[in-house]
Amino acid sequence: MDIKDVENLAELAKIELTDKEKENLLKDMEEILGYVKQVQEVETKDVEPSYLNKNVWREDLPASSVFSKDLIIDQFPDSKDGFVKVKKIL
């Protein structure tokens, strides 16, 4: 890994890092990945990575919400007419 890799990851994760932070992260990543990559030595022939998820369905019927819509809207950092306001998207 090198600094460019850390920068790419930061871009994907939408996090801004100072140069010092990038250097520290590079060091950390190398150390941690050096530890976790031991999973690659484990024999797991024929094991499929079946995730725990299975679909749980309900009827497509509206239910009354238990949360306060006003409290949610009040907490929008920037809003107008009950809509969240953000910088341009397109």
Binding site: V42, T44, E48, S50
Partner: peptide, 9 residues
């Protein structure tokens, strides 16, 4: 994916 396989093991 590898970690999931080891998890199942």
């Amino acid at each position: 994916n590898k970690a999931w396989k080891v998890r199942h093991a």
